Simulated scan of single mutants.
Amino acid sequence: MQWIPLTQPEQLTDIVRESAEQPVVIFKHSTSCSISAMAKTRLERQWPDADLGQVKTYYLDLLRYRPISNEIAQQFDVRHESPQLLLIRDGNCHYSASHMNIQLGEIRRQLL
């Protein structure tokens, strides 16, 4: 799993464009929250076995880039949560989950 830092609002345009060619995941992480850290560690540990190599992965440091998180909520019509994982395909959010409800198996089902 190789995280692409999401640090510029303009990257959301890229994500929408990329999602037409391959699925994109955005992980919103609060670096000061132990639950968020646990969710991130769990994602990274389970990713290799989830067979999601075709998915591009973006990482948003929520504390440093909160305005981008707000833009994500508005653009993809999701409620802001942290930690939160979103699956973007064809410019739309097809899966959104937070905290320990984040399930890579559900991401796989969405891609079948």
Score class of each variant (00 low, 15 high):
L86H: 10
T13Q: 15
W47I: 07
E18V: 13
P23E: 08
W47V: 02
L12I: 08
L60F: 01
I107R: 04
I26C: 04
L12C: 07
K56H: 03
L12E: 11
P23K: 09
S82C: 03
S82P: 04
T13N: 15
N92C: 01
H94P: 00
S96V: 14
I26R: 02
T31Y: 02
L52G: 10
I35M: 13
L104Y: 07
S82E: 08
G105V: 06
I26A: 05
Q46W: 01
D90L: 01
V55F: 03
E81I: 01
T57V: 09
L86C: 08
Q110Y: 00
S30A: 15
Q54L: 10
N101Q: 13
V78G: 01
L43I: 15
Q110S: 11
I35T: 15
N101P: 00
L52T: 10
P83M: 10
Q84S: 02
S34C: 09
H80I: 01
Y58M: 10
M38A: 15
Q84W: 05
Q110I: 00
I35G: 00
D51P: 00
L52Q: 11
F27L: 15
V16Y: 01
V25Y: 01
R64I: 01
S69I: 05
Q103L: 11
G91E: 03
A50E: 11
V16M: 03
A73S: 15
M1A: 14
R17E: 13
A39I: 04
D51E: 15
V78L: 03
D51A: 15
F27M: 12
M1Y: 12
E71Y: 00
Q8T: 14
S98L: 02
I4A: 05
H94N: 11
L52H: 08
V16L: 06
S30W: 11
D49Y: 05
Q75R: 15
H80D: 06
Q110K: 10
N70K: 12
G105Q: 14
Y59G: 03
Q54E: 14
C33G: 05
S32Q: 10
Q22Y: 05
H94W: 09
S34E: 10
P23H: 06
Q74Y: 10
C33Q: 06
F76V: 06
V25D: 01
R108W: 00
L86A: 08
M100E: 04
I15W: 05
L111S: 11
Q2T: 14
L87N: 05
M100P: 04
D61K: 09
S34A: 13
Q8I: 00
I88T: 08
P9K: 09
E71H: 05
A20D: 13
N101W: 04
P5N: 12
L43T: 07
N92V: 04
Q75E: 06
S82R: 08
S30L: 10
A50Q: 13
I72S: 07
T41Y: 08
C33R: 06
